[in-house]
Write a protein that binds this DNA or RNA. Structure first.
Length: 606
RNA sequence: GGGGUGUUAGUUAAGCUGGUUAUAACGCUGCCCUGUCACGGCAGAGGCCAGGGGUUCGAGUCCCCUACACCCCGCCA
């Protein structure tokens, strides 16, 4: 038997051969993706990351090769030498290499495979639980390979685009000091410092600012971040950001860099020309029309704020309205489902279920009749005709339309209505359940408030972080009307996903002190928590700002993947565990002692 | 912490108002087959119906609990 590997080298990938290669002797290496054994002739589809090629073992090859060929099974790893032949009229249109086949003269089985636990096919119908347990097999599937290959290209392109603009790729530590606020940190016991802990960096935020103070001017990094929070379809505990920070810039400069980068990615990877600059929308408008700060602009169905109208009608004799407008944060919002949607009563009841599952008390509905009256509605009898007509007019409801109403504390109304809107967008076919549908609606959400009121803590807290620069024109309200202060923070949104966010930083120590004061943070407290940054800012910090772009989400949207898990090689489950390695796992008592750590987990969980 | 969906051969599923031997397809094993590409033919193996408890003469099927996976709220930029 020929000595493959050491003497015979691969000449082509399994996706390379074309009709013009006919007559060549080639060597292919790969996995058996399918086999069709006719006794006299054996057909194999050989797979590597580039594609599939049909290999034929005919009766006229040596008896040893014949015998070996019959032994081939799915997922055997083999090497084949043979002659490329044109298949003439007998092409397989499903394969890129379908016009040719390799007539094997030599075969080497590098390794056999046990029967795999699930079929390695492009289309997925295996339970994700199984796929994750055998991730290395799942990763043999072409769609997953393509997704990761795309990610690799994204990395390369990002480095190219940013390096060409004088950005330096600099590294920051993962093991950092715990700082309060924001996402929950993973903690790492510090063996050399008994009783002390590192935090895994939730982002390089502070360090990249220090790069600016140090004078590096333009920084970027493709970097892992760690957040110990609950997972979602688009959230993993460890994820990758394209982290960027720039000196001597204002918001528009950051936008230009990001728009240039994303345009390049879309052009090179999808061949799509993105219109720039991206649309911009004030945060307030986004909340008013869509109930969240990451609106999907691929479809309409905006919300209507009826609070003021209800107030001017003193509740219109609807008890729930009156109750809502009496609350400090009470909000009454409506959404119109057009008559053309043809929602059945059962559909509407399911919507109410959905609303309840998100904490709503219910979902008031009203069907608009020809004369503008309401039917199928508990409110129909009590509401004053004046308010009813005024509402119809404000929302522009026509006969047959269904009005969905939500009232209560603003935050809850927003959550419910925002999710309902997206749900209906999918249900009514305005957007596909997954993927872009070929529409790329990029958006900058800008000018959010600097503070939000924390009901629990009874004070204002930073909506983003405490180092965001307020608008100069609003600085005067820091003491008198903090809620009115808008800031230079921005989110980049694509089709309802937040794909990036950042801010222009506050580099003026005097304003910084006033911001802390408005948040009820004493000088002392600020010094203990953020001392090193505050000190750095006192030694000549340039005006600076930046952004972090969620690489995984970008990859998910770019590849049309349904989940972040499909663009991360080794993702975690919803409970944050790894089904392949069974992490997190137990450790020995001795290891804990060494770290000066004691577990107080209930025995049942150990 | 809460709400929802699911768990039946290796895989994907069917299994009705509870009824005695739990089906099918693919995969797997053996034999046959020179033009397949969803190859075909014949024969065969393969099940703690997620786990535990209950109701019942009898449970894959009904009830409760638990575990795991997924989606969502809370949480998280």
């Amino acid at each position: 038997m020929t000595n493959f590997i050491s003497e015979i080298k691969r000449t082509h990938s399994c996706g390379a051969l074309r009709a013009t290669d006919a007559g060549q002797t080639v060597v292919l290496f790969g996995w058996v993706a399918s086999r069709r054994d006719h006794g006299g002739a054996v057909f194999i589809d050989l797979r590597d990351r580039e594609g599939l090629t049909q290999v034929v073992f005919e009766a006229d090859v040596s008896t040893e090769v014949q015998a070996l060929a019959h032994e081939l099974r799915l997922e055997f790893v083999i090497g084949v030498r043979g002659v490329v032949k044109n298949r003439g009229g007998n092409v397989n249109p499903k394969l890129a290499t379908g016009s040719v086949e390799v007539h094997a003269t030599e075969l080497c089985i590098f390794n056999r495979s046990e029967a795999v636990p699930f079929p390695i096919e492009d289309r997925v119908d295996t339970a994700e639980e199984k796929r994750l347990a055998y991730r290395y097999l799942d990763l043999r599937r072409a769609p997953l390979q393509q997704a990761l290959i795309t990610r690799s290209r994204m990395n390369t392109l990002t480095r190219e685009v940013l390096s060409a603009q004088r950005f330096l790729e600099l590294e920051t530590p993962f093991l950092v000091k715990y700082t309060p606020g924001g996402a929950r940190n993973f903690l790492v016991p510090a063996r050399l410092n008994p009783g002390k802990f590192f935090a895994l960096a939730e982002s390089p935020q502070i360090f990249k600012q220090l790069f600016m103070v140090a004078g590096f001017d333009r920084y970027f990094q493709i970097v892992k971040c760690f957040r110990d929070e609950d997972l979602r379809l688009d959230r993993q505990p460890e994820f990758t950001q394209i982290d960027i920070e720039m000196s001597f810039v204002e918001q528009n400069d950051v936008f230009t860099v990001v728009e240039g980068l994303l345009s390049k990615l879309w052009k090179e990877i999808l061949g799509v020309e993105l219109p720039t600059p991206f649309q911009r929308m004030p945060y307030d408008e986004s909340m008013r029309l869509y109930g969240n700060d990451k609106p999907d602009l691929r479809f309409g169905m905006p919300h209507h704020d009826l609070t003021a109208l209800a107030r001017s009608h003193e509740g219109g004799s609807v008890a729930l309205f009156a109750e809502t407008i009496a609350q400090k944060n009470g909000l009454l919002k409506a959404m119109v489902v057009p008559a053309s949607a043809n929602l059945s009563r059962a559909d509407a009841e399911k919507l109410e279920e959905l609303a309840r599952s998100m904490g709503a008390k219910g979902l008031a509905r009203a069907k608009i009749a020809e004369d503008g009256s309401w039917t199928q509605s508990p409110l129909a009898k009590t509401i004053t005709p004046e308010l009813r007509l005024a509402i119809n007019a404000q929302v522009g409801a026509k006969a047959g339309d269904l009005l969905l109403l939500q009232m209560g504390p603003a935050a809850q109304v927003h959550t419910v209505m925002a999710n309902l809107r997206v749900h209906l967008g999918k249900k009514l076919g305005l957007i596909p359940p997954h993927g872009s549908g070929g529409q790329w609606r990029f958006l900058w959400v800008v000018d959010p408030p600097l503070f939000e009121y924390d009901e629990e803590a009874q004070r204002f807290v930073a909506a983003h972080h405490a180092f965001t620069r307020p608008h100069d024109t609003d600085v005067q309200y820091l003491e008198t009307d903090p809620e009115r202060v808008k800031c230079w923070r921005y989110d980049c949104v694509l089709n309802g996903f937040e794909i990036g966010g950042g801010s222009i930083r506050l580099h003026d120590p005097a304003v910084q002190a006033r911001v802390f004061k408005a948040m009820g943070i004493s000088d002392e407290e600020a010094e203990t928590k953020f001392g090193f940054l505050l000190q750095a800012l006192r030694y000549g910090a340039p005006p600076h700002g930046g952004i972090a772009i969620g690489m995984d989400r970008l990859a998910m949207l770019l590849t049309g993947a349904e989940s972040l898990r499909d663009v991360i090689p080794f993702p975690k489950t919803q409970k944050g565990s790894d089904l392949m390695t069974d992490a997190p796992g137990d450790v020995e008592e001795r290891q804990l002692r060494e770290l000066f750590v004691k577990s107080v987990a209930p025995p049942s969980t150990r």
